[in-house]
């Protein structure tokens, strides 16, 4: 299992389009993917779940990856957060 903490850095936060991209990235991998915020955990492959977090700029999230290709998924996902979902 891999756990990584990420911060939301784009102005609009984790709104609909980034959420859609997150689940699309996650769907490419076999590994399970969870996002948690203040002990609330959602399945990162469910778009409604990801959007429910309503993560604004500056909020910190814990990403959890578990499964055979967890390392590759973790790398791509952390990178996507680090790029501010391409909205910087």
């Amino acid at each position: 299992m891999i756990e990584k903490e990420v911060e939301i850095i784009n102005n609009a936060g984790m709104h609909t389009r980034p959420a859609s991209s997150i689940v699309k990235i996650a769907a490419k991998y076999k590994a399970d993917f969870f996002i948690s915020r203040d002990n609330f955990e959602v399945n990162g492959k469910s778009i409604i779940g990801v959007m429910t977090l309503a993560a604004e700029k500056g909020s910190k999230l814990m990403l959890k990856f578990e499964g055979e290709d967890e390392a590759q998924l973790a790398e791509e996902m952390v990178d996507f957060f680090a790029k501010g979902f391409g909205e910087l």
Partner: peptide, 25 residues
């Protein structure tokens, strides 16, 4: 519906910031 959900989410993110909430759940 998709548009409505998007608007709700954007409003939620904004209110999180305004109310200094730490989560949207």
């Amino acid at each position: 519906a998709a548009m409505k959900f998007q608007q709700n989410l954007d409003a939620k993110i904004k209110s999180n910031i305004a109310q200094k909430k730490t989560n949207g759940l």
